[in-house]
Design a protein around this nucleic acid. Structure first.
Lengths: 345, 345
DNA sequence: TTGTAGGCGTTATCAC
DNA sequence: GTGATAACGCCTACAA
């Protein structure tokens, strides 16, 4: 292993000089800077992470706590994890992966051991039990998702209410009058995940404003569940012409069911998916979708936590902020003008 | 922050005693062990990770390098990552997430800084450029995937050849004579990913033995691509009655295309998917599938690297091993006896 | 069975 | 602009 002392000797300077060249924390003559840097290159020196963390009281690691549940659409989770990792690297940080099954103890362990300088929590519930731990042990955190009370915290999430409103507006603009909202399984609602309610509320309020009649039906994303949901919607509201789907798993089944019920999309029925663009484009017809950027979610969370870590390092009080990312509606081939009443099957 | 000295004082012992109680590396009287442990609890002591890594020359972290490419089915990647994380925790290890865009330099950085004690590499190519780095800088590694030359390495992967053979056998057993293999996009083959070729070879050899005629067609998993592939298959081999799909994205489109071409599954055409069980069960009809355990893949990789790290710590030569996990065929509702010749549309 | 003390490789304070 | 040097918190021979 090559140490800072090796580099110092090789460059003919003291080890503190090497340290300062690397950290840039004090002025160094151009001459020595070059000598040191070429020694670093030549010897392939990388500072020992443990020693650095010990001396500087900063590990240059942030922890990312991911949910184990799979009712969250997995590719989005992964996209966030990767965005977090790459954004962290830009700040000279690495990312430690923690699973949610460790729960509050995991947060405690990471904070107390100094393994990470901060934690990013995904899949935050409204009254998340990890939050009190953060506060009691002074761990810096950024939450992806909105808790009930974001006081003292930095949070970032999609603006799900705006997403719901976009769906209602688009369908209303196209002249639809009866629409159905196919949501997540009931578990997601009873769990107080927040995003499901917020989408629904945003949709419902805008629908009311625009004079749209709508029903909300939970659906757990299997074919059977979707078939049941679909049948009940048509039974209750046979004149439904617009569908908003939030559960990624229900999209394929819904399209199949529409087709086999004799409805053509978008002539007889319009479909909007609340999902990432890549998925929306994979279906036939390509789906009009309302999408937020998972990548940006991760990036913002990293920036939030970096600011907090820096502040805490300077013994300042970190500033709390809540950021809601505005989603976008992309019109593709699955939405069109409402059919004339009585013209659908 | 609570240190080992605080615990020692609180328990009325020396700090080395506390250390030994925690590591279990020497005999301790039942009496003191209890006192120390209750002090640890009471004070909420967690050893400082940096100090521990520095003194013991072991970070208790393993790095997991994940691909950025999305032609690997993302949920499987995530399942592996989570399995790795949970298995590592069982050994007292945490997992650092590294993205493949760091390439060989990432491996060098992790090894040289002592940030991690070992690395698990996912999405290994046949002549992966990260492998020479491992050897030159003595970093312990476990590979998920098989390189050309596994000498000096520990590797684990699914037995894709066996998976291919299972598909051929099942279709042959059902009396099919003309089958099509819908693979990944051409990029996956030219990239030398290994698993695609191995599946195809295993399938092809068994098909030949069983007197099955088959065509292989690459497909990148979009609807359009699948439609094109499907059309060409039917044009070239109109009597095709069996389909094997390896590309997860092509499954939905294929089922839609079969249906709209007037074929009922499984009466007119049988479909086998090479994908995880959860996905196979999501379609209608539920798909017969050949599946390997992603969770086991991750677990085995962790065990391999733990053995290597331990060996290296004791200055022994780590033992190399290559493990191939046997996949299983699960018969569901998408495969059935071949239709009588001439009876399909 | 337990204690003492040296060292792990960096950072950062103090001195020049 | 540069060098010594004292922490940082833990582990592990070496002693007792």
């Amino acid at each position: 292993m090559v140490t800072i002392a090796d580099v110092a000797r090789h460059a003919g300077v003291s080890s503190s000089t090497v340290s300062y060249v690397l950290s840039g924390k004090r002025a160094i003559s151009e001459e020595t800077r070059r000598r040191v840097q070429s020694s670093v290159q030549e010897l392939g020196y990388h500072p020992n992470a443990g020693a650095r963390a010990l001396a500087a009281r900063r590990s240059h690691i942030i922890a990312l706590m991911v949910p184990l549940r799979t009712d969250v659409y997995v590719p989005v989770m992964m996209e966030i994890a990767i965005a977090v990792t790459m954004a962290a690297r830009q700040h000279g940080y690495d990312v430690l992966l923690i699973t949610n099954d460790e729960g509050p103890d995991g947060v405690r362990r990471i904070g107390a051991s100094g393994l990470a300088d901060g934690v990013i929590l995904m899949d935050v519930e409204l009254d998340d039990e990890r939050i009190p731990v953060l506060q009691s042990n002074g761990t810096q955190a950024a939450l992806i998702g909105l808790p009930d009370d974001p006081a003292g915290l930095s949070c970032v999430d999609h603006d799900f209410a705006a997403a719901g409103a976009l769906c209602a507006d688009h369908l209303a603009d196209l002249g639809h009058r009866e629409v159905a909202f196919i949501g997540y399984g009931t578990g997601v609602y009873t769990r107080h995940a927040g995003y499901a309610e917020r989408t629904l509320t945003g949709f419902g309020e805008r629908a009311a404003q625009r004079g749209l009649r709508f029903v909300h039906r939970p659906c757990d994303g299997t074919y059977e569940s979707t078939a049941g949901t679909f049948a009940r919607i048509l039974a209750d509201r046979p004149d439904t012409t617009g569908f908003v789907v939030q559960n990624e798993g229900a999209i394929g089944p819904l399209l199949t069911l529409l087709r086999s019920s004799g409805r053509t999309v978008p002539e007889d029925a319009s479909v909007i998916a609340l999902c990432q663009a890549q998925l929306a484009e994979q279906f036939a017809p390509r789906l009009t979708s309302v999408t937020g950027s998972a990548e940006e979610l991760g990036r913002v969370a990293v920036e939030q936590i970096m600011r907090r870590v820096t502040a805490a390092g300077n013994r300042q009080r970190p500033v709390d902020e809540t950021v809601l990312l505005t989603p976008a509606l992309t019109v593709r081939d699955s939405t069109g003008p409402a059919p004339r009443p009585g013209s659908q099957p």
